[in-house]
Design a protein around this nucleic acid. Structure first.
Lengths: 207, 207
DNA sequence: GCATTTTTTGACCGGTTGGACAAAGGTTAG
DNA sequence: CTAACCTTTGTCCAACCGGTCAAAAAATGC
């Protein structure tokens, strides 16, 4: 039914990487609907038909991008696990998420764009894999609370708050920079944010 | 140089309202580039040329929408003022912001879309009006800290955290609902969020 | 060298989109 | 009734966009 799937050549893999990198740039800046194949092709340094030789359609580029994104995006939450010290564990999770906002802002914005549009392409993943993962972590957090290791609160909304505050520095970057002003520009804002968020979450959970 | 600007008739004002309401629906769901004038016209119950009789262009609809949006969007922060009890003041601000996320999710998403795209149309407002407003409020918060009424922390990142956590329930609504699952669906999540956020912010600031 | 396969490109196509326009239909004032 | 104005619509257009295709160019295998 299908032509024998011969493995990708070295050059094919490389070109696909170049295209995905360019597409991440363009899609994260203008959204999927707001971007054109020509823009991606330009950014990738090739012609439109050439790009379409490596990916069958614009949709396929986006799908490939989303698949990779989700893998790396959930990694920090996977690492979050039942350790000796809950405070250390939560602090580590916040730090990792904030580092991702700093180092992978394009991925964060691409994800935010998808959710904002109602997450049509990844809804099943949100309701399945993501929900189950969060459920598992929420159970760990509840155990810590019952053991009296941290203050009692809603674990789901705690996770939402960590997501919201950390991703804010990637998704709303222009606003953050505009409000902080030119004098407080530079990468220092991420260290300030790290200090603040630690105080906010840990200070609240220790009580 | 310009034709005498005669006042809008009653019917013109009403139709413009209908169009803006429809455009808010469409733009907030699909983004500006992802929406078409036809979609807006359909949602407004009129033909495309008729819509373009009331607004010169798609761009003008969006600009009008953004102008209004920003006015209502900054209202809660304007209310936030130097009162007797800092805790009451901050709690009130969080509550108002969360109510806006609940009652005006379309406005929140439209704003988020604009910021995500780099805020090309409102950059000057962010660097001017918004920055000055936040600077003023940050000074108030610092005064409270110096007076020992609340714990010391970075007032700017405190405001960012309040924005991020509250708007998250509008902008990432589908994700929140997917993770909470069908059993915890309904409007109850806003009350849970209110309780959690109060505990998070107030609990941290009282220390 | 030559044959075969892979890569690249220019030209093209059908559908969509923002917008123009003139004509038709309504409304209001005298 | 009629003249002036306001509102609505059908039609059209030029630009754009995703995608095809055949043919040229380059790489590869022998």
């Amino acid at each position: 039914m299908e032509t024998a799937a011969r493995p990708l050549t070295r050059i094919q893999q490389e070109k696909r990487e170049v295209i995905l990198e360019a597409a991440l740039d363009v899609f994260s800046a203008s959204g999927f609907r707001g971007s054109t194949i020509d823009q991606v092709a330009d950014a990738a340094g090739m012609s439109k038909p050439n790009l379409l030789y490596y990916f069958r359609s614009k949709e396929e580029i986006h799908a490939t991008l989303m698949e990779r994104l989700l893998h790396t995006w959930l990694a920090p939450l996977h690492e979050f696990d039942d350790g000796d010290d809950p405070i250390t564990e939560i602090r580590g999770y916040i730090r990792r998420k904030l580092e991702m906002a700093r180092d992978f802002p394009r991925e964060s914005r691409l994800f935010a764009n998808e959710i904002l549009q109602g997450a049509p392409r990844i809804m099943s993943l949100l309701e399945g894999e993501l929900k189950q993962l969060v459920d598992k972590k929420a159970r760990i957090i509840r155990k810590w609370m019952r053991a009296g290791k941290i203050a009692r609160t809603d674990p789901y909304h705690l996770i939402f708050a960590i997501w919201a505050t950390t991703q804010h520095y990637a998704d709303f970057d222009v606003q953050v920079r505009a409000v902080l002003g030119p004098d407080r520009d530079g990468e220092g804002r991420f260290e300030d944010a790290a200090r603040f968020l630690e105080q906010l979450f840990i200070g609240c959970l220790k009580a």
